[in-house]
Nucleic acid binder design. Structure first.
Lengths: 183, 183
DNA sequence: GTTTTATTCATACTTTTGGGTGATTTCAGC
DNA sequence: GCTGAAATCACCCAAAAGTATGAATAAAAC
């Protein structure tokens, strides 16, 4: 069994649509709200213009601060531009879902072969003894596990071997696994 | 083990980069259509401002060359600010990878677990004896199969049990199957 | 040449497994 | 009520498995 991983790219249309819906809802339809930002921009610019004129009147007197004045204008309008851009662009998240298939060998889930079990005619107790036997327990250990005497386990073993037509526990375990009556 | 599917989230950097490239390619056309109104507004206002300055310039002769210069700076740096902000803010994308487990029951092909075999330190002969043991053969039958004496088989068994740290053949077989060193 | 490992074989002994016989109790089906 | 099956238990004995000790040979590595 190779452990190769397959990558398959998949974009979920549901999420795409839902994101689009959100965008639509946030688009204003009314005239006032539609031009809210440009109105704000216009008002801001007008006030800024007024401020500039006021600063100019004060700076005309002092010639040394010419560069400071220009620099201030540059910074102010850069920040204004950034602010405007940030207002206009909302960060969006786009989720891309990728499904990756991993092949896993199924060793943990055991499905009992009922048909084979019925055919062999093993009782519930006998099947239980067989399972413990397959786990590597000795007869004495099986007896302790099931709270019965060693003689009882031996009797179950004899019955199991008889029904499965085998001579020893290793054969019983091997057959049991092949028939799918023990995991 | 329940047969539930486990979801694990994982971000692949490779796919992230490739999708990022696609997004970059689509950016210019989207940008123009998206900010059509603000752009138009901005340009209009800039031109209006320039016109006002120009009219003022004509009325005040060349005494106000200074205002034209400042106005130009304001426009340039507003555009620069917008450009900067758009550069800084990009739509985010999140990649989500969902791992999907596919249970495979591979009973027909047996792949020897070489690593486990090396770790246990079983020799070729010992592995052969273990395989026959798992098939249900008695020590005497294994000896006949391999054309060796019963004592030889017993010696191999002792070595196998020692290396696997088990007490009896059923434990050795059980462990051998679980480790994948016998089919 | 020496050392280590794998393979093979033997002997003696202990422990575990497996076969045979018999018995008792409980429960379900007729 | 009777019968058969399942579960439980006991005792005896043989066979098989497992342990311990020792030995020999061949091949590969140092």
């Amino acid at each position: 069994m190779t452990a190769d991983k397959n990558l398959s790219i998949f974009v979920s249309p549901h999420i795409f649509i839902s994101l689009f819906s959100v965008a639509v809802e946030k688009m204003p339809t009314k005239f006032i709200t539609k031009y809210k930002i440009p109105l704000l921009y216009g008002i801001s610019l007008a006030m800024l213009l007024f401020l500039l004129q006021w600063i100019k009147l004060r700076l005309v007197i002092i010639d040394h601060y010419f560069e400071i004045y220009v620099g201030a204008i540059a910074i102010i309008f850069t920040v204004l531009g950034i602010w405007l851009a940030l207002k206009l662009t909302k960060p969006k998240e786009r989720i891309v879902i990728i499904e990756k298939e991993i092949h896993v060998q199924n060793q943990e889930t055991f499905t009992l072969n009922e048909k084979a079990l019925v055919q062999l005619g093993l009782s519930v107790r006998e099947l239980e003894v067989l399972r413990l036997m397959a786990e590597g327990l000795s007869n004495q250990e099986i007896a302790a596990r099931l709270f019965v005497s060693l003689n009882t386990v031996k009797t179950h073993n004899s019955r199991i071997f008889e029904k499965m037509d085998v001579k020893r526990r290793t054969q019983a375990v091997d057959m049991g696994k092949k028939l799918g009556i023990i995991p």
